[in-house]
Design a protein around this nucleic acid. Structure first.
Lengths: 192, 192
DNA sequence: GCGATTTTATTGCTTTGTCAAGCAACCGAG
DNA sequence: CTCGGTTGCTTGACAAAGCAATAAAATCGC
């Protein structure tokens, strides 16, 4: 009696199990990684992610908006993370030459060192919390599937579906972005 | 410095791809689900999760700590969510009879109705963002793997390293809930 | 060239959640 | 029975991240 609307069929038991397991995983995994990194390296997962993406970028630098997209973070969130990383000198901001509105976040040598220092912790953590549990799965297939999760254009679920049950909307205001360029290929660490 | 500890081998390319894809998914998927629910139902994912777990519990009630564990949330976080859900009358708190320190969060009829109202949105969202992208995978195997992610009893990676680890005082705690009783019709799907 | 619009990044405010401290009720030893 | 310690939950202080508003620079139309 939940149905109505177009009433999609409910999930079958196997789908249900996957969804429940995934629902748990998306809550627990990032916390576990973040906790390890915080404890052993005094660094948040987002900070690590920022350093990592920079280390893989050509010239070890990226525009703020690029970096935010790469880290799946809002621009304002990225501003704050870069500011945080700037204080110990892991990153410097440089004005963008071809567009003076923009800034490049540039990974310094100190920042690269810091990343390399944190890398073993992250690697161990990733192995322990994730990779070690994937035995027997077809990794290529899995990677493909995971890449596609939540890539649907935004919401626009079915544009109208008629509800807005409890309260009137103020404004959906979706800020979702498209897929990140993701040109960079590899490592968690930098080859420089 | 930090490395040592036998320095694990880096990930192979396939593992790397999975980890990167998963890293993205764990950031993006919850936001997508939450955004849909917020937009169409004015309800956060955690609120939905709380209602859902209660709906499946015997007597439509759970102790605060149980519920927090089920939702993978801190106890204080759960206190706040239950308080929020109490205001519109979706939940009531009742003192626990066999231990007067404890409280049961009880799902009211209004709360159940609310959950059923939100269910189609959640179902569509879950299909669109998750299930639709899992074609071709062995779902049973995948569910098993996902259930095991981040289950390692806390870190204890390498304890030392000269820092001041503020001692993660909380143990793993491991209050994982077994398979959902699923008595209620409204799980994420739980057709009943 | 000069205003109007658009893009890029930062800042203020708010929400949400965690941690630490606190209060109340339970439990076991004497 | 009562006193020390523990457990279950709530509250206060704080941190992180998002959205809205803003500033600054670019770009377009004329």
């Amino acid at each position: 009696m939940v149905s109505m609307t177009g009433s999609l069929p409910p999930l079958n038991p196997e789908e249900e199990a996957v969804v429940r397991a995934l629902a748990r995983a998306i809550l627990v995994v990032p916390r576990a990684l973040d906790a390890d990194l915080s404890r052993e390296q005094r660094m948040s997962l987002n900070e690590y992610s920022a350093l990592q993406h920079l280390s893989e970028a050509p010239g070890r630098q990226m525009r703020m908006s690029e970096l935010a997209a790469a880290c799946d973070l809002s621009l304002s969130g990225m501003t704050r993370i870069v500011s945080r990383l700037e204080q110990p000198g892991y990153i410097v901001r440089e004005r963008c030459v071809e567009d003076a509105r923009g800034w490049n976040a540039v990974l310094t040598d100190a920042g690269l060192t810091r990343l390399e220092q944190a890398y073993p912790t992250q690697l161990a953590s990733v192995r322990r919390h994730i990779v070690d549990h994937l035995e027997g799965l077809d990794l290529r297939q899995l990677a493909t599937a995971l890449q596609n999760l939540a890539t649907t254009g935004i919401c626009a679920n079915h544009p109208d579906d008629g509800r807005v049950p409890p309260a009137p909307p103020n404004g959906p205001d979706d800020n979702r972005r498209a897929a990140p360029a993701n040109g960079r290929a590899t490592g968690l660490a930098a080859n420089s």
